[in-house]
């Protein structure tokens, strides 16, 4: 007999439990057959899905048609589409401040510009990074890790790291000071803060997208490049005529994925700026959170209505993504 290993010591009690579970389950199997067992295996997941995802999804619509500050549905009054009309009630549709829910429209505007700028800049840097990581590099996995590192950090940590760097006595001002420039209170300036939210969220997420693009680059058959080299194709032309077209489907998926994530931006920005100064970095998720929970004048119905509008955008984006994925699959089959 060999001496018991550590893993067998850990597994022994678990195995014992599993054996005890087995007896009633064998009886269940006898009674319901193998099909019944399939249901048994699926049940816990479906139950949790049902309670915590599907049910909320359905009652979200009910919520959005009720008013008041109570959270229990039974204590809420049905008010039809009033929450939606409140969201859309504006004197001048070009000026968010003229709307009744000006915060909502500010958040929509901020989120829009954030999404446009963050996604485009991030995908660009991710593409450059992926192209560089795809070259013949020494210690490539080390460099890949370098760019990937911030992806794992928690949003709160990301927010705090950058809050510390951007504050008055922070590293950024220290750098400027070294070059003889004056320190600046970055996080009290509306425009600089907005720029900072974009920069920080690119810093935090770029590595993830670079990794996916890199996988796409590495999936391009090497012999295509060799063939191009045999033809004496210039590197720039190789990029435009081989790399980019072959990468395009992958890149499109990445863009939509980034859009979906970007629309929901919240955690790190909330910690970094709290939505301020003023409402300059108030984004949709924060609006929903504060309207639903945090603000003194909380209005869960309004938050639900806003979240449904946001959900609609996300569903459209996801359907686009699935569409692209399907097309890619079909291409693969051909």
């Amino acid at each position: 007999m060999t001496t018991p290993s550590l893993s067998s010591l850990i597994m022994a009690p678990i195995n014992a439990v599993m054996r005890i579970i087995d007896a009633p389950l064998r009886r269940l199997q006898k009674a319901t057959g193998i099909g019944g067992m399939a249901a048994f295996f699926l049940a816990p997941n479906m139950l949790i899905f049902g309670i915590f995802v599907l049910l909320p999804l359905v009652i979200n619509f009910v919520y959005s048609m009720t008013g008041g500050t109570a959270f229990f549905l039974s204590e809420r009054d049905f008010i039809g589409g009033a929450q939606y009309s409140r969201l859309f009630e504006c004197q001048n549709y070009l000026d968010p401040m003229s709307c009744q829910e000006d915060a909502f429209w500010t958040a929509v505007g901020n989120t829009f510009w954030f999404v446009v700028l963050q996604v485009s800049l991030m995908i660009l840097t991710a593409l450059i990074t992926a192209l560089i990581l795809n070259r013949e590099l020494a210690a490539r996995s080390f460099w890949r890790a370098v760019f990937f590192f911030p992806v794992l950090l928690s949003p709160v940590v990301v927010g705090l790291i950058w809050k510390w760097i951007l504050q008055r006595q922070g590293l950024l001002n220290f750098g400027l000071y070294q070059f003889g420039m004056d320190p600046y209170t970055w996080l009290t300036d509306r425009d600089w803060t907005f720029a900072a939210t974009i920069g920080v969220s690119i810093w935090a997420h770029m590595g993830f997208y670079a990794l996916i693009i890199l996988a796409g680059l590495q999936a391009i058959p090497k012999d295509l490049y060799e063939a191009a080299e045999m033809d004496g194709t210039r590197p720039a032309r190789v990029f435009w005529r081989i790399t980019l077209p072959l990468l395009a489907p992958n890149l499109l998926v990445v863009v939509v994925l980034a859009l979906i994530k970007s629309v929901q931006v919240f955690d790190e920005i909330y910690v970094l700026t709290g939505g301020g100064p003023g409402t300059s970095t108030l984004f949709l998720t924060q609006y929903i959170y504060e309207t639903g929970f945090a603000s003194a004048l909380r209005n869960p119905g309004l938050a639900a209505a806003a979240s449904i509008l946001m959900g609609t955008v996300l569903v459209v984006l996801t359907l686009i993504q699935l569409g692209i994925g399907k097309r890619g699959e079909n291409k693969g089959k051909r």
């Binding site: 997941n45 599907l54 929901q264 998720t285």
Partner: peptide
């Protein structure tokens, strides 16, 4: 079942946080 699970990929927390909160409270 597969479709249901796939569909939930589209439902991030930020979309259902209000009703989810009420369910959590009820439970």
């Amino acid at each position: 079942a597969m479709l249901v699970i796939l569909a939930t990929l589209m439902v991030p927390l930020s979309v259902i946080m209000v009703p989810l909160y009420s369910i959590i409270s009820t439970l």
